[in-house]
């Protein structure tokens, strides 16, 4: 078995290398000296790696990184605070009209972000919420909330009824049952929901480019975009920013791969 599987491993490595080539290329370009960027045959390897791209990126994009971090964490908080109780109401307390609500959430996920962006823009213009961190947190959370509710509902529906019953017999009310039994048991769902809420908010471009185009609070995605517009010569700095912007995804993939896979398949594959 082991001996026969080696060719497959080699082939698998080749496929993966091919797939990840653009990622490698991003890193390679980020380390290339500015003078070598315009050569007609690009360097395949960073033979003389330079960190001038990273220095430029960090000196200019640090505030954007901080903004994105705040927006991402805010989005996680909003999503969990709204989705977890809703999942409890739907799955454990059997909310009347739950099917309709589930249906609405599925429909909500089909609405194009550009449409939501226009609606939010029209509202924010009047309320003066354009270019605010709170405005962006709320808009970004609309990507994650329907997903969060559906994920929590699916998981909580699988919590054994005896567990909830036992809590009630011990005299716990619905709130206490929620905080002391259901939430702790749903820890993994909370991690998956938080992870995706953060990543989606961190990666969001459409809301960022429409609702906070100017002002002091520019998230990192928009930082990169404006960078491309401003100096097309310094692609090493652009790619260095891109590498830095990819770090959360990379870290989360390494630390929480299980939850990533759980989130991708949620809703599409039923166990």
């Amino acid at each position: 078995m082991t001996d026969r599987s080696w060719p497959k491993t080699v082939l698998g490595i080749v496929f993966t290398a091919f797939m990840l080539f653009p990622v490698y290329w991003m890193v390679n370009v980020s380390l290339t000296p500015t003078g070598d960027l315009r050569r007609s045959t690009p360097n395949w390897f960073p033979s003389e790696p330079t960190f001038e791209g990273y220095a430029a990126a960090l000196s200019q994009q640090l505030p954007s990184l901080a903004t994105s971090l705040v927006v991402g964490l805010g989005c996680v908080a909003v999503t969990v605070v709204i989705a977890a109780p809703a999942g409890y109401a739907l799955a454990v307390l059997k909310l009347r009209g739950g099917r309709t609500l589930n249906f609405l959430l599925l429909v909500a996920q089909m609405i194009p972000a550009v449409v939501m962006a226009m609606g939010f823009y029209a509202i924010y213009v009047r309320l003066g919420l354009l270019n605010t961190v709170w405005g962006l947190i709320v808009a970004d959370s609309t990507i994650a909330v329907p997903f969060g509710v559906l994920l929590y509902t699916t998981f909580m529906a699988g919590i054994p009824a005896d567990l909830v019953h036992a809590a009630r017999i011990d005299g716990a009310g619905t709130w206490r049952t929620f905080t002391a039994v259901v939430l702790p048991v749903s820890r993994n769902s909370t991690l998956t929901v938080s992870l995706f809420a953060f990543l989606w908010a961190w990666s969001d471009f459409i809301f960022a480019s429409t609702l906070s185009r100017s002002g002091e609070f520019v998230p990192i995605t928009l930082g990169i975009y404006q960078y491309i517009g401003n100096n097309t010569t310094q692609w090493n700095a652009i790619m260095a920013t891109a590498v830095v912007a990819s770090l959360p995804a990379a870290i989360l993939l390494v630390v929480a791969q299980r939850y990533v896979a759980a989130g991708v398949t949620a809703g599409a594959v039923k166990d």
Binding site: V23, M26, F205, T221, I224, M239, L253, V264
Partner: peptide, 18 residues
């Protein structure tokens, strides 16, 4: 797991790399 990387990267990152 490594195959998931392109899906997790911010779209601005992958799009500008491409």
């Amino acid at each position: 797991a490594l195959f998931l990387v392109p899906w997790l990267l911010p779209l601005i990152v992958s799009s500008s790399t491409w």
